[in-house]
Design a protein around this nucleic acid. Structure first.
Lengths: 164, 164
DNA sequence: TTGACCACTTGCGAGTTGCAAGTGGTTGAA
DNA sequence: TTCAACCACTTGCAACTCGCAAGTGGTCAA
């Protein structure tokens, strides 16, 4: 990817950071799937990301300040990836992408449940989710509400029963 | 670009349609710059899109149902591109991209004015803008408010005086 | 000690990007 | 009627990127 500064337009600059076919997929998996290591991201990938592409994107996203990497205290070679505040602020963008995709593509029912909930909940739900991500990734206090658990429960309910 | 269906996730499917470095740039220029022909898009491109890439993306976006192409009644070889309803519904997504880029990248002042206005106006402004795009591109009635003119005036004011 | 695990890295063929130049029909002025 | 400018692309090509498959070297648990 040529990551040169083509123009100073904020939409363009967002595209230059995230406008490829994998970066946002990785952030989505860390954010909604709470996958925190290379192995979890590689094995759990719905889209089947290749190992070299994953390594490249983790490197790029870390350098860009969207992910932070630290050692696992319990396991010398394992490294834990966390979302940074800029990445957490992508929640509204990902919610809009999910909402658009739900309306204008043919997504699978099960994988749309989270997008639907995020759309219905709107900005207040996004804010609650962002607070929870700050707890999970930045060490902030645990908020009262767990949007993550709500999304997960809805997803699991949808996968338990086949789409009707 | 391999445009295969990697998964049924709505975020992924949105990325598969728009997740490259040029598609959204083209839509942005049609939407906010009201560039309606190949030549206008090529000449006016802030980012300097190459002619073959532009031709490829116009073809792809038309096939994907995001742009519509029709002949210009006044000029046999000129073709006019319009946004379709799905593309108009990208307004909230582009607004969020602009908002994120404004906060987390170093955009130029002049090119950030529109993003700032869209962010301040929020969903009501987006809705008004979408109504106006339906007028400009789909032949709907002209709405009372012209968000397009407001954005354009703010942009021109910002370019007239250098950033302070 | 040994086999599994972990986070990548390497090799390579196929595909994509983007610069520069070219194509062929259309328009408008002389 | 001629012809240069315009219009929407195409083509050629070198450089780069993608993604599959296999490999690397350190670490952990039994």
């Amino acid at each position: 990817m040529p990551r040169t500064r083509r123009s100073g337009c904020p939409i363009n600059l967002t595209l230059e950071q995230l406008g490829d076919r994998w970066s946002l997929i990785v952030i989505r998996d860390v954010m909604f799937g709470n996958r925190r290591t290379y192995g979890e991201l590689l094995e759990g990938s719905e889209e089947g990301i290749a190992s070299n592409i994953l390594a490249d994107r983790l490197e790029w996203l870390t350098a860009a300040g969207l992910l932070a990497r630290r050692a696992d205290p319990d396991h010398a070679q394992r490294r834990i990836y966390s979302l940074t505040e800029p990445a957490i602020q992508l929640v509204p963008l990902l919610a809009q992408m999910g909402a658009w995709g739900r309306r204008h593509t043919r997504p699978s029912k099960a994988l749309s449940v989270r997008a639907e909930l995020l759309e219905q909940g709107g900005p207040p739900l996004w804010a609650a989710f962002m607070d929870e991500l700050r707890h999970l990734h930045l060490g902030a206090a645990r908020p009262a509400r767990s949007v993550f658990a709500e999304l997960q429960a809805a997803f699991e309910k949808a996968t338990a029963r086949p789409a009707r």
